[in-house]
Design a protein around this nucleic acid. Structure first.
Lengths: 214, 214
DNA sequence: CCGCCGGTCAACCGATCGGTTGATGTCGCG
DNA sequence: CGCGACATCAACCGATCGGTTGACCGGCGG
């Protein structure tokens, strides 16, 4: 069997080195490259495909300081012809962008504190075209899908995260390119779903339910 | 010159592997071990010292999921006889624990997105007993030290904790057996000291500065 | 094809919050 | 003693939030 070619995308040199070291320890896996942001990832995927050495799996960090973000990069890569699988790599299993990433075509999901064995399994599953979600994450996603009324939408979680930073509605509106009216509408829905009646309590509840962290 | 022996402390296997790979690429540096939490770090430092192979530098992550935290571990290690230098490793240069860590005896400071060269320099500086703070961080620390810690009073912290649960002023007043007016006065002082201008931001700031948890 | 859900926006109004000024009392420290 | 730090309360007003009603649109599923 031919080797699985992997591209690493993470803005932290340390993490790239760590993944490279880990993956190269595994037989059948070859790290074809590592880049620091989404745009470079897209370029690298294209280049390697053009060279006749296409990668089968992209390990993509969601949190990237600057440049193209992970979700956009995932969408762009998955829109190429004969695209590689994209495995999302993130620090928190509460990350609201999980859903966005999966919708963008990510085929799997990994927490950064995953043990090497889990990373290896995920890469190999992805290379076989299987989706491989971490158990907790899969459960969370399933929960979202199965009970749409009791759980917050991706947009609502996104709002909640800005809320937790202490922004007033006006700034949240600006940040999300929507009107203040819309922000208020979302907030009402959030209060409803969380069973509270003000922003501060919403944050407290959301934190307690691990919908947001930090 | 004999090699610099380094101990890695980080709860993420990926990061440990990355640092190990990076550091072992440098001549004169030897990674003597890597552990996942503070308690294990203390034990490992002791063990290696007993074996006559003491580490000169500990690379210590501040954010660790469970077990002994980085600040406590730093303090404990620096209290040993003939202790190694401790280099703090963290993701955010805004981390309030920086100050605590430096007070606990940390001799240096590194951001996780630092390039390999910077990491190497920091380790070598630390091994020579020099403190090596990243420029931005050093500036931040100086700023903090110059402006005497405008710390909150016990009463204000008490209020902050109720605030974080989502109570409106009226209920906080009832809870503390004071008038709503007094609650507002306290809040103004809290906003002042934290450099914010609304309750939600105050909670966010207080949490970030570890004034309140959860 | 029609209904529902999610996301968007507007207008309105009462409730709450943010900020100010000013006042009183207590406690500890030089 | 006098000063400062802390805690307490009041009154006031503009800004923001909370809650409602109603509306439009796009997508997805029955």
């Amino acid at each position: 069997m031919t080797e699985i070619r992997v591209l690493l995308v993470d803005d932290h040199p340390v993490v790239r080195a760590g993944l490279r070291a880990m993956l190269n320890d595994f037989d059948g896996v070859w790290v074809a490259g590592d880049v620091a942001d989404g745009a470079a990832a897209v370029a690298e995927v294209r280049k390697l495909a053009a060279l006749g050495q296409p990668v089968q799996v992209v390990l993509m960090d969601l949190q990237m300081g600057e440049g193209m973000d992970g979700v956009t990069a995932t969408r762009t890569i998955r829109a190429l012809e004969d695209p590689p699988q994209v495995l999302i790599l993130t620090t928190y299993d509460t990350d609201a962008d999980i859903i966005a990433a999966v919708e963008a075509g990510a085929g799997g999901y990994l927490l950064k504190d995953a043990p090497p064995e889990e990373i290896r399994r995920a890469v190999q599953s992805a290379a076989r075209g299987q989706t491989a979600l971490a158990p907790e994450v899969a459960a969370r996603l399933m929960g979202r899908i199965s009970s749409p009324t009791t759980s917050l939408s991706a947009r609502e979680i996104q709002l909640l995260e800005l809320l937790a930073t202490g922004m007033p509605n006006r700034r949240i509106a600006k940040e999300l390119f929507i009107s203040e009216a819309t922000v208020k509408t979302h907030l009402v829905h959030i209060y409803d779903k969380l069973g509270v009646d003000n922003r501060t309590a919403a944050i407290s509840a959301a934190r307690q339910q691990r919908i947001i962290r930090r």
